[in-house]
Design a protein around this nucleic acid. Structure first.
Length: 709
DNA sequence: GTGCCTCGAGTTCC
DNA sequence: CTCGAGGCAC
């Protein structure tokens, strides 16, 4: 034991050792307490250890560990979970619904790898568990972190909760020093039933389905509640590894089993698509007797070397696919068809349904996409669902696309009454009365009211405060809408947000007297707004809500122009379709004529321009911090990218290269210094060879610019 | 012109 | 998540 005097006398090295020891001791104690119900130390000792840990951390803040016990179980319950950046992105899977999709999947892989039809290509097939994915990080065999998938790049830290799941080992003997194990947390049918009976007895809410129950249980702020819930875990994948788990998918899964994880017993190897499809039918037949929910079968290329060669698209691997079971359907009728107006003026029809349960969830709305869909045609005028139109009062077949978005699959025409009438899509905006027009070749009808239309104005404001834009704490979509409709403190356009505090002060500070508001909440809101007066250029460009300019394009533009004045000057000077400014816009990789025109219009149309000017006058725009390119290994070089890139998109690659002072060209010439060639590179690689231009692959490029994979 | 691949926009429910 | 469409390579 180490007392306060010891801590005061500690050297940094001693402190680091002490912290490591405490982390281990407390983690073991936690594990024992949460999983076995058999504490290895008593509460007083536990608290004393924890205090020591905190005291050492206070004296040596730089030594605080990533797995610090002060951030874990037993720590006071904080609001929300911490964020965890995954060492390797958690990908999602491409979906397939038909046998043909699977044949194409295999063909795509053969083509990409340049394999002959006659050569062997092995796969694995396993049930796709319907739960939620989890990434477990082990260091030297010890579980140090568990994180949910989140958006794939950043998830939530649910370490304390994961420790309570008995299928998840606290310690793995013989594991690589760094090992991220990925898999699915789920609840069995039996456990789900029992839990709901218990919930009912305690007067707690019932869960709609095992998946929701599992998700709700894992995301409890109090790990003790998670502990009382019967969660299970199947391991099927991995992230960062300090050394490999095997040469093939099958070997790696076997290894995970050896290390103490549950792996799904229905995982098998297959040597062609026929075997994959046979296993699919087999699992489909067993589906009802498995005792847990699955929603399809996952196929993966077995050879990990081939997996590495195939690599990833932006969000999915090329070497795996999920063969989904047909979606569950339900029948109900349409009580009404309503029109919503979006930020770009798009009129979107929504069917109000007689509530019905589909896949364990009660659905009362379903999207009808657009005018053509209601009329029974697709965007090109081709009939869908046999060309039947959709009417108010129709009995319809509903399913949840991707198990999420409710959609109308088909109409039962035989149940139509004699007075049934075809739906007439409005030609004027239901919100503002302006003309709603459909441009040639567009499937969407749009309100022409612009900012005059209250619906568009509100949606634009909601976009402005959204997460990837200004992200003002305490000013979400609900609040924005309330302020929009407030007579005294109205927010009609983005600039009004930044004058809110002054206007409220001039108005005798009435905000704090509103329903649900007080001194503190008003003060917090004003502070949060002030905080966002300084805004990075890319966020500002995205927040403007210009059509065709999403988060990604905003980043490209910010990268190119680096600061607001440069961006504004070009857009102000640009003419639609011609001139040097237009050419500069078009020269940006990822910007084409449609986006360029949308940008130019928004800076020339007087209403939108003055709204932008009023906003920018309130802000301090943070320019993009350009790295100093002196000493950059590629400064001044002319680089060309070809073939498919795996670690980054072409646009990202170009932006990064430019940041480092390189020029990026579209084609290989005598002036080219370097060609970065991914798989599938064709004529350019040949030309480079002819001209004697140096050719490297993506990994070598990343190494060159100092970004290791 | 065709055929990927990505992105943008709009959607529901918890 | 899905659809449509923009952008780019061939």
């Amino acid at each position: 034991m180490t007392d306060a005097k010891h801590i005061a006398a500690m050297t940094e090295a001693e402190a680091a050792i002490a912290l490591a020891g405490l982390a281990k001791q407390l983690a073991e104690a936690n594990a024992a307490y949460h999983t076995d119900d058999a504490p290895v130390i008593d509460d007083a000792t536990y608290d004393a250890l924890k205090q020591q840990n905190a005291a050492i951390e206070a004296r040596f803040p730089n030594l605080k560990r990533s797995d610090s016990p002060s951030d874990q179980v037993g720590a006071p319950i904080s609001e929300g979970f911490g964020k965890v950046t995954h060492a390797q992105r958690m990908m999602s899977l491409d979906n397939a619904f038909t046998d043909e999709d699977i044949v194409e999947f295999a063909a795509r892989i053969r083509k990409f790898l340049g394999l002959l039809d006659s050569s062997r290509l092995d796969f694995t097939a396993e049930p796709k568990i319907d739960g939620l994915s989890l990434s477990l990080r082990y260091e030297n065999g010890q579980l140090v972190q568990a994180a949910t998938r989140g958006d794939g790049a950043v998830g939530e830290n649910v370490t304390a909760n994961a420790r309570t799941i008995s299928d998840i080992p606290e310690f793995c003997k013989d594991a690589p020093e760094i090992m991220e194990v990925r898999g699915e947390v789920y609840m069995s049918h039996d456990d789900f039933q029992t839990l709901n009976v218990r919930q009912n007895k305690n007067g707690d809410k019932q869960f709609a389905n095992p998946r929701n129950a599992a998700a709700g249980s894992l995301r409890q702020l109090d790990a003790n509640i998670t502990k009382s819930r019967p969660l299970r875990f199947f391991a099927y994948s991995w992230g960062e590894l300090s050394h490999s788990l095997g040469k093939t998918q099958k070997e790696a899964i076997k290894r995970l089993k050896y290390l103490g994880f549950s792996t799904n017993p229905l995982t098998i190897g297959c040597s062609d698509t026929a075997e994959l499809l046979a296993h699919y039918r087999d699992i489909e037949a067993k589906r009802a007797t498995l005792g847990y929910d699955i929603d399809g079968v996952v196929y993966k290329v077995n050879d990990l070397g081939l997996q590495a060669r195939l690599g990833f698209r932006s969000t999915t691997p090329r070497w795996a696919i999920a063969h989904k079971f047909p979606a569950e359907i339900a029948h109900t009728f349409i009580e009404a068809i309503e029109i919503q107006v979006g930020r770009t003026g798009a009129l979107s029809p929504v069917a109000r349904l007689k509530p019905v349960t589909v896949g364990g969830v009660v659905v009362s709305n379903a999207t009808l996409h657009n005018e053509d869909y209601i009329a029974g045609r697709d965007g090109k005028g081709q009939p869908i669902r046999g060309g039947r139109d959709i009417r108010v009062g129709d009995w319809v077949e509903i399913y949840r696309a991707g198990d999420v978005i409710p959609k109308v699959r088909d109409v039962d025409v035989s149940k139509r009454g004699p007075d049934s009438q075809a739906y007439t899509f409005p030609k004027i905006c239901p919100e503002c009365g302006s003309d709603a027009v459909r441009e040639e070749g567009d499937s969407v009808r749009r309100c022409t009211g612009g900012l005059i239309c209250p619906a568009q104005a509100v949606e634009k404001l909601k976009h402005f405060v959204s997460r990837a834009a200004f992200d003002i704490e305490g000013l979400g979509s609900k609040q924005v809408e309330a302020f929009f409709n407030d007579d005294q403190l109205s927010i009609r356009e983005p600039a009004d947000i930044f004058s809110l505090a002054t206007r409220d002060a001039a108005n005798n500070s009435k905000l704090k007297n509103r329903d649900g508001w007080g001194d503190k909440s008003a003060e917090n809101l004003f502070a949060a707004i002030e905080e966002k007066r300084r805004i990075p250029l890319n966020r500002l460009i995205f927040a403007l809500g210009i059509r065709h300019v999403g988060e990604n394009s905003a980043n490209l533009l910010a990268n190119h122009f680096a600061n607001w004045p440069a961006f504004e000057t070009i857009l102000t000077g640009a003419q639609n379709g011609t001139g040097t400014e237009w050419d500069e816009l078009m020269s940006i990789d990822g910007v084409g004529s449609v986006m360029a025109a949308a940008l130019v219009n928004s800076f020339h149309q007087s209403n939108s321009r003055s709204s932008i000017d009023r906003l920018v006058a309130e802000l301090e725009v943070i320019p993009l911090s350009r790295a100093d390119t002196t000493g950059s290994p590629v400064a001044g070089l002319t680089v060309v990218f070809t073939g498919s890139l795996e670690q980054m998109t072409r646009a990202e690659a170009k932006a990064t290269a430019e940041t480092l002072g390189a020029k990026v060209a579209g084609s290989v010439s005598a002036k080219t210094d370097l060609l970065v060639a991914g798989p599938g590179a064709g004529s350019k690689a040949k030309k480079a060879a002819d001209l004697g231009v140096k050719v490297i692959d993506e990994a070598e490029w990343l190494a060159l610019i100092g970004r290791n994979t």
